[in-house]
Amino acid sequence: MSNTQQLEDLTTQVRRDILRMVHKVNSGHPGGSLGCAEFMVVLYNEIMDRKDTFDMDGIGEDLFFLSNGHISPVFYSVLARAGYFPIEELSTFRLINSRLQGHPTTHEGLPGIRVASGSLGQGMSVAIGAAQAKKLNNDAHIIYSLHGDGELQEGQNWEAIMYAAGNNVDNLISTIDLNGQQIDGPTDVVLPMGNIKEKFEAFGWTVVEINQGNNIEEILKGMAVAKSKSGKGKPVCVLLKTMMGNGVDFMMHTHAWHGKAPNDDQLAIGLEQNPETLGDY
């Protein structure tokens, strides 16, 4: 267990990793990555019951699936700093011959990744399958997944949402990153999705809201509640309200940094706002 300051420090370092990774290759998705930094740090370091070593089947531990694969920078940073692969490898992000592809994949054998994602809307189905495998294996661990809010526009999600509730997949905790932004603008403008909470509830899910999704204490509390609601016959949805670009002031309150890398000056500002804590890769 870490204290809040340790988690804050790790989050700050993860933010630095994200900025430096996307800056180096002048591509990638910093906005959503920064928005989910606190959540990913808390999930991997405080919430999940996981093993230090990686094996694909993951029997006897909690598993996580990232459905919105474009936030790979935060995923890679958190995985590396959790010990799945050397942090130096973060410097190969998006480079030729790297295991750190633009979007996460199992194809290059990067430890910590269990399925490719990037083409949106597929992760919840995979998570449900993994959850059913856990039940067949009498493995009482939980499957976690993360999805973008814009991603809910993909129809496959609603097939999965319907299935999970209809079949009592209650060892599944799916988190929706409610940042209200997508590439072309606010989700309410691009394709209004109405009341997402009511939609999940109408489909038969238990919904837990974390209204301050960039606050470590709030995430800890909310995820504890989510965990306590699992195993009760219903899948659990966590609505995590986040700020895209959180922690870098000029990247916040806009969708502009969804898929754009900072230039040299912008990187310097971003790093200045997030001083080195655990050591850069």
Binding site: M56, V126, G129, L136, N137, A160, Y163
Partner: peptide
């Protein structure tokens, strides 16, 4: 899985994780 082939394929992928 019902008339939901996309979910079926994704679930099948997930079921392999755990050795099925």
């Amino acid at each position: 899985v019902g008339i939901a082939e996309a979910n079926m394929i994704g679930m099948a992928a997930g079921l392999t994780i755990g050795g099925k």
